[in-house]
Design a protein around this nucleic acid. Sequence first.
DNA 1: TGAATTTCTATTGTTGACAATCAGGTTGTA
DNA 2: TACAACCTGATTGTCAACAATAGAAATTCA
Lengths: 228, 228
Amino acid sequence: MTKLGSLKSEKRLLDRQAADRIRQHILQGILPASTRLLETQLSEELEVSRGTVRSALAVLAREGLVSQVAFTRWQVAETSAVDAWELYTLRAALEALAARLAASNMTANDGKRLRETGAELATAVRENRFADVTDIDFRLHQKIVELARHGRLAEQHDYILQQVRFHMVHSGFLPRDYSALVDEHTALIDAVINRDLDLAERLARIHNEAEVKLLSAFVEQKNKSAVQ
Amino acid sequence: MTKLGSLKSEKRLLDRQAADRIRQHILQGILPASTRLLETQLSEELEVSRGTVRSALAVLAREGLVSQVAFTRWQVAETSAVDAWELYTLRAALEALAARLAASNMTANDGKRLRETGAELATAVRENRFADVTDIDFRLHQKIVELARHGRLAEQHDYILQQVRFHMVHSGFLPRDYSALVDEHTALIDAVINRDLDLAERLARIHNEAEVKLLSAFVEQKNKSAVQ
DNA sequence: TGAATTTCTATTGTTGACAATCAGGTTGTA
DNA sequence: TACAACCTGATTGTCAACAATAGAAATTCA
């Protein structure tokens, strides 16, 4: 577990900054699932008070990345196949709604920027830059959600995506069939741009459901092997 | 094996208890939308420290009932027609998923209890106990979500429902057509119990979308008249 | 006058000290 | 040995003092 380094001298609330740093470490896998988090230790590494750390941990708990056992301990969230299932079913429902709304809001300018991101994804796949693919994939989905212009939906979707990322990092999951991935995204983008509400919604749902089984299986296997 | 009667999980954290109290006041309309909340005042009234109140307010902020302006103020959330639209569109998507999952999990025993709540609703309407109707209505939907056995979905749905309640109290919204309300719920319950996944999903969605326009209009009108 | 600047004050943000609680080890007893 | 009751140290929960900030009020100066 590497040190987190000091905060201070920025303008945002300290507890949010602390949460940002801890979140980053969790999402990068530096703090793996189920790791115990000690308030005192974190407060020393981040050079803030324990109260501030507590507040940061509360933020992360609400985001689903950390869990609290009252009076006893904080820990990085656990991962399970059930979690993976929950995440993907929820994600499918949210993105289906987002795709429909985005399609109905679509303008020429939004469409252009959406296609650009889609092209980025295709290029990254073509050049075998697999590390980038995941990032672009996430960014693409976030962009569609933005176009839905729905604050609560965007917030909720962000949390879900964060947890998905966490599960992926923790289990070592990677997409299997990259060309299918590009095709699915292209079809989705087209449907949104063409303002085909029903198709956009359906494609968003299908795209997600395809991945749920893969990730669930991965997480399950990873956890089984960790027990041995 | 611990003793059966050990209810030591009653020991709830103080900040959660404080949040409960404040939440209650907000949902009852005692603290109306946009009311400024002073940490010191709350801490005196609740007889806890300011830090505890702060933590409670953070909880409520995450639930969407309170908003924070950094370094400046806390206040009860505002209400708008856009909020109402967001709530109902999200609610429709979540309950559609819940209805589908509930239908696919359905057992004879679950079905019986679901019908009981449905009957309660019908009785309350028949006896013109309109105050009770809303409560039972909410409970019924929560029950369906429970049957979906999906932790994150349930949590998210709870938050949304809370905010809907808040908007209803604030705007003075009441259902318009009680017999249609009973019919819609009966049809939904039947679909879930008959394990008709597609129908259950569709009915849940339609039921919600019917109400979105009404509540939006109500909230908008309420806010307009408040400006004068 | 009135725009810019400087107090001033109410309120929020952060901290370190103290209290409550828990897990695990130790002792005492059948 | 088995097991319950009692310590003990580590850790979390709560508090009240102190610092920083924003916005209002007072002051300056063209």
